[in-house]
Design a protein around this nucleic acid. Structure first.
Lengths: 236, 236
DNA sequence: AAAGCCGATATGCTTAAGCAAATAGGAAAG
DNA sequence: CTTTCCTATTTGCTTAAGCATATCGGCTTT
C-alpha cells in the first residue's frame, strides 16, 4: 500500500514525533548534535519553517537545546518540568460534579504583621484586610483560605462584599493579570485549621502559598490549606 | 522624533506585549472577542503570521481562547498554570552550593505488593527491585527516596550498582525519555522516614510521588520524602 | 601566549500567498 | 418549532524567500 521507505511527514507535528522517536530509540542520544534545520527540512521533505516550529516546541518542552551557530542538541539530561493548572476552587470542585459551597468565617482590617510586611514588601504603617474563608465540596470541608489583601494597593477591597463570593473571584476581576509566586509545602494543622477542615491538630496539611503582585506592588498573600488526602497531580 | 501615533510594532513579541497591555489596561476585558488576525495584522502593520504567533503563544500561556470561526477571546478567568522544574536531587543540592552525599540504605528483590501492582498495572507474578536511599546536603538529610523498579520492564536493573550513584541517575540514562505522572502531597512521617530525616514520627512531610512509563509499560514508582521545611516554589 | 577581530554558519524571525479544517449562524426542510 | 444542511468566516498550517542576529573558531595582532 504505497509503503515507501520514508513515511512522508506532512506536518510539524509529524516532524516532532519523528524527532522524538529518533531520540527515544537512541538514534540521537542525549548530548548529540542534530542536523541543521536546512538539512532536516530536506530529509523530511518539508519547509525549513516547519522543522523550525517542531524543534522550537521540543525546545520549549525541555528536550532540546538550541543556540545560534552552535546548532541543536539533545539535552544531556532532559529538563523535566511539570505544569500544574491552578483553577479557582469553585471550578475545581464543580469539575468533580460536587456542589460548591463557600463561607466567610472572618474579616478584619488590621495593621500588617511583621512577617507579612516582609513577605509582601510593605511599609511600616500598611493596613491589610484579613479574610478567613472555607470552601466545601458536597458539604465536606475542602479548603481553608487564609488571605491578606494590601489595602494601600487595592483600597476598594475594604468595601467589597465577600460574604457570597470568595475573595479569589473578586480579585480575579479586580486584578485579572498579575505576577505570582506560588509554593507548595506541607504544614501541620493548627487548632483552627484542624477544626475547620475536620482534622486533628498536628495532622499534615497540603498547603499552597501564593503572593501576587501587579505593577511591582504586592496585592495579596494567601495560604490555602487542603483537606486530608489532597494531592496535586499532573502528567507529562 | 518621528513619534507617530502608532508605535510601529515590528516583532511578534511586541505584538504580544501590546495585546497584553490592552488586556491589563482594560481595553479588552475578560470575555471580550478580539479582532481577527487579518484585522490586527493591518492595525499593527505586520503580517498575519506574526499576529498568529503572538496570539498562539498567549493562548499557550493561558490568557486567550481561540476557536476557528468563533474567533479569539480573552479568557473569562485566566488559566493560571505553574511550571515546576524537576531537577535531579544532586543538581538541586549542588545548585545551592552544598555538598551532595548519597547513601543506599536498602536493596531487595521482592514480589510486587498489591498496592504497587495496582498502581503500576503489573501482573500477579511481577517481581520488583525495592530501593531505599538517602540524599543529604552538607551532612544534613535532605530527601528520603523509596523506590520500586519493575524488573520485567527493566531486568538489567537487578545487576546495576546503586551504592555509589542514586537510581535516578541510572534510570535517566537507561530510560531517558518517558511518560510521567507526578503528584505533590503532604504525608505524616512514619517511624522509618522520621528516623532518616531527623524528624518526629507523625510530623508533616512534603512528598512527591512519581510513576514513570515507557512504551506503555510501568518502569518505576518512587516516593520522595523531603526534610522539614521543604517547599517547591515557582514564579510566573 | 593572550587579546582582539572577523567571517561563515545556524538559528530566529518576518513576509506574502495560499490551501485546510472547524464551525457559527443562517437558510431550508420537515 | 425543530432538525438538517450549507456556507462564509476564522483560525491552523505550510511554503519559499530573504534579512537579522548571535557566536564559534580561526586569523591576526599585541
Amino acid at each position: 500500500m504505497n509503503d515507501t521507505r520514508r513515511p512522508d511527514l506532512t506536518s510539524y507535528r509529524e516532524v516532532k514525533t519523528e524527532i522524538l522517536r529518533r531520540i527515544t530509540e537512541g538514534d540521537w542520544a542525549p548530548g548529540t548534535l542534530l542536523p541543521g534545520e536546512v538539512e532536516l527540512a530536506e530529509v523530511f521533505g518539508v519547509a525549513r519553517a516547519t522543522v523550525n516550529r517542531a524543534m522550537r516546541e521540543l525546545t520549549d518542552e525541555g528536550l532540546l537545546e538550541r543556540r545560534r551557530k552552535a546548532g541543536t542538541r539533545v539535552r544531556p539530561s532532559p529538563r523535566r518540568s511539570a505544569r500544574f493548572e491552578i483553577p479557582l476552587v469553585r471550578e475545581e470542585i464543580e469539575a468533580t460534579g460536587a456542589r460548591y459551597r463557600y463561607a466567610l468565617l472572618g474579616r478584619e482590617v488590621v495593621p500588617a504583621p511583621d512577617w507579612l510586611r516582609a513577605r509582601m514588601g510593605l511599609g511600616g504603617a500598611a493596613r491589610v484586610l484579613h479574610l478567613s474563608c472555607l470552601h466545601a465540596a458536597d458539604g465536606a470541608p475542602y479548603q481553608f483560605e487564609d488571605r491578606w489583601i494590601n489595602l494601600d494597593a487595592l483600597p476598594r477591597a475594604k468595601d467589597a462584599d465577600f460574604s457570597a463570593d470568595g475573595p479569589n473571584e473578586w480579585l480575579v476581576k479586580a486584578v485579572p493579570f498579575s505576577e505570582v509566586e506560588i509554593s507548595f509545602l506541607a504544614t501541620a494543622a493548627d487548632a483552627r485549621t484542624a477544626d475547620y477542615l475536620s482534622m486533628s491538630p498536628g495532622e499534615p496539611v497540603f498547603t499552597v502559598e501564593r503572593t501576587t503582585w501587579w505593577e511591582g506592588q504586592a496585592i495579596t498573600h494567601v495560604r490555602l490549606y487542603f483537606a486530608r488526602g489532597h494531592r496535586m497531580t499532573t502528567r507529562y
